[in-house]
Nucleic acid binder design. Sequence first.
DNA 1: CTCCCTGCTTAGATCGATCTAATTAATCGA
DNA 2: TCGATTAATTAGATCGATCTAAGCAGGGAG
Lengths: 353, 353
Amino acid sequence: MDNRNSKTEQKRRVTLEDVARDAGLSRSTVSLVLRGSSAPSQRAVNAVFGSIQRLGYVYNRTAANLRTQTTHTIGLIIPNIENRFFAEFTVSAELELDRAEQTVILAHTSESVARQQKAIAMMLEHNVDGILICPAPNTRRVNVQPLIQSAKPVVCVSRRMPGGPWRYVAQDNVTGSRMAVEHLVQLGHKRIAFVGVYPNTSAYHERLSGFREGMVRAGIAVDERIVFPGENSFEGGFRTAPRLCALADRPTAVCCFNDMTALGFMKGLESCGLLPGVDIAVVGFDDILEAAVWQPSLSTVRSRASVVGCEAARTLMRAIAEEATPDEEILVAVDLVVRRSSGSSPVSAAEQS
Amino acid sequence: MDNRNSKTEQKRRVTLEDVARDAGLSRSTVSLVLRGSSAPSQRAVNAVFGSIQRLGYVYNRTAANLRTQTTHTIGLIIPNIENRFFAEFTVSAELELDRAEQTVILAHTSESVARQQKAIAMMLEHNVDGILICPAPNTRRVNVQPLIQSAKPVVCVSRRMPGGPWRYVAQDNVTGSRMAVEHLVQLGHKRIAFVGVYPNTSAYHERLSGFREGMVRAGIAVDERIVFPGENSFEGGFRTAPRLCALADRPTAVCCFNDMTALGFMKGLESCGLLPGVDIAVVGFDDILEAAVWQPSLSTVRSRASVVGCEAARTLMRAIAEEATPDEEILVAVDLVVRRSSGSSPVSAAEQS
DNA sequence: CTCCCTGCTTAGATCGATCTAATTAATCGA
DNA sequence: TCGATTAATTAGATCGATCTAAGCAGGGAG
């Protein structure tokens, strides 16, 4: 007669108490069963699972969170998930965290420090057990002050962050860039440009310093006029190409900050009437999916985002278990993938033109 | 003398109680201030914020969650975030949810029903306020039974799900495919193939039925031999091309399930010695970033993932506020982007070969 | 002076788990 | 049969907010 199943009348959630009553046991015993303790008798275990099935009980983690002060929840702060590196990173980190029975809270900052601050505050309110963060450019110490104060386990990914020491997991940018230079030098190139400058992230500084290091080792002076500013994007690379082509003493080879920049740069070269891989050797960084299938295919430094994601997740789990020092660093090895875009030697290129 | 700041001795969290004591008020009043109630006096408000600042208080949402039975948390279940559509969707949904002061819990299923089931269970345990889900292929009613029982607000994105009625937000697949066909028909094509069959998702069925609809309207019979099975991916498209090229009565145009398939297909055409956009017209679906910059640039149906993300988030918020019916549907309009890959008419292509 | 507002404040119950400390039941050796 | 030991169970406090229902001033009307 009374319509208790109306829209506003929300039916009470089934609780441990209900299960206990149904199973003829106490709340405590049921709780022990749920957590897989060896204490309860087989009879009790059976009774509990029977009741859970019968009543449709759903474990209420929010209640446990309050009592245990641990939420089995990890904050993941990503600056730009449309960047394939971070997409791949996210997938593998999520997978690894899921294996460790952790839930992922996601925040996307779009490279904005303000959104990042909000994300950090929100995650601390949710009392996450730890945080994986790839900091936005221009992140200052003051922007992460709440993180520091919280003393929660944190792992920085792919970019360093002020206010540390922080745990740090990233691809080996310095070695990678150096390998790219060494590859070009081996092909006989001497005049090598660097394209794609996005200051204020450590990845940029590291890749550029790896570039310099390679040049120095090869005994070549770095000509600062052919270290090209510009955004790290397809557009950025595209717009840089004509400026490079216009130079009197045109470089014979180019290291790009990343693959998207390199692809745009190659496209720009073509619209200047130059053939990448023939007239100018081009090397990228990341090895995104498109690198292999582009025309010409792109020689690049492969940074394995999924390995970075997995290692970052594991490092965080160890940090939570207090098995990792606060300044631990993992550099994931990179390797050079030689394809067509770096194919030509400068000599053959000169012959051709 | 006593080293209370040791590693194991974790300092007690600052609570509302502490703030109340410091401000000389009761817990209740402080709580009212925090929630922006108009009841407390200005004096009280100032005192509370002063104490919060001084003590470094961080709001504990897990405690509030337990009492209010609302977590301000949304579950986001994504099958494949490396797919650009979902990456873009995720960014805009997250942004919109953040605006509504909601926190996003992310789960990535990698198109696996098993992982999806685990994700749903986990989210229900965390007592999310609502769920955005793009179901994995082959999702059956039994796989989402817990979702049904929970009676929580759910919005399906981009793919339909059994066990409904469910709210549904997606790009208009049927119209989009039909527009692609109409475009090709207008160019004079009569023999049009469909490439990229990934059954068991509604998006596939809808795009294929839009294709059929377009053909029927143009008075062209669909030749089932040139509806090509194969995975929806670069690889899938690539492998389909030679099979299509080998046909005696080769199609003059191709509709691809999505852009990645189309790009792979075009690459495959080239390795068969055919020029996409010259020998065969190709149209994709999605308008991913690469479509515009590919060689040749890809004609495609633009489905605005960010609009879908935004609409899905809003629909869910309305559902939570009980302002949306359980079977609400939003189809986001698509539009045709004509580029070079569909450039040629079948006549000029015939002349050329 | 009493009664009733209104504006501000608060004590104490509550959400649903976990944890501590203790109790009860079962087993065993002497 | 008894005390000791182990196995199984449980009552009640606890986590940190919110919410309910009520209390306490101070002012204005009757």
